[in-house]
């Protein structure tokens, strides 16, 4: 009971009461009927809500966006290695051919696929469709299945293509 309504004690490092400069925080200040200022209770956070798939899918769109950016950064380094020359590119290939590197690539692929599916849903919502509660709850599992399916197909196919080319090169006797 007490914790939420405790008066604000905001002090800086030297123990001096800090002035409120953050507008957002200033808006949390309210007053009791006796006139003393208090910090108003904030809206309840995540832990009080019942689990819904849509909340996971919502934050996942952001998380996969960040991961996709990281993957794009790696892709740029790969391209930079190709531009630099054969030696640098061979180093890059050691990373992309490594099982750990391929796990990272698959993570990038999955993130890009989910972010694309999530982005398509956002574009559909922006156009004014599929935004009712029932439709949202129906589409969520579909998005998960489409992501899993497309990621698996693309991932396996790409691994097969790369493996076949490596095999063909080994057969031709060239040092890869």
């Amino acid at each position: 009971m007490q914790a939420r309504w405790a008066p604000i004690q905001r002090r800086d490092r030297d123990g001096v009461q800090a002035p409120m400069q953050d507008i957002r925080k200033a808006l949390y200040v309210g007053s009791r009927s006796d006139g003393t200022l208090i910090e108003r209770p904030m809206s309840p956070h995540l832990q009080v809500y019942r689990y819904r798939l849509s909340m996971v899918l919502s934050i996942s769109n952001r998380i996969t966006g960040v991961i996709a950016t990281g993957g794009a950064a790696l892709g740029v380094f790969w391209l930079g290695a190709a531009a630099k020359g054969p030696k640098a590119f061979n180093t890059a290939r050691k990373v992309t051919g490594n099982p750990l590197g391929q796990l990272v690539l698959l993570g990038w692929l999955g993130s890009v696929v989910y972010h694309t599916v999530g982005g398509l849903r956002h574009l559909i919502w922006d156009a004014g469709y599929r935004y009712d509660k029932e439709e949202l709850n129906k589409d969520g599992p579909v998005a998960v299945k489409v992501t899993a399916g497309v990621s698996a197909v693309l991932g396996i196919a790409l691994l097969c293509v790369a493996g076949r080319r490596r095999h063909a090169r080994a057969k031709a006797g060239k040092v890869s």
């Binding site: 794009a72 950064a73 892709g75 740029v76 380094f77 391209l79 930079g80 190709a82 531009a83 630099k84 020359g85 054969p86 030696k87 640098a88």
Partner: peptide, 20 residues
């Protein structure tokens, strides 16, 4: 990062490779 990617493309399309 975007600039690095663009310059890598320019280098590739110019056919330059330092041989390293």
């Amino acid at each position: 990062l975007g600039l690095l990617g663009v310059f890598a493309v320019i280098k590739l399309v110019a056919g330059g490779s330092s041989g390293k």
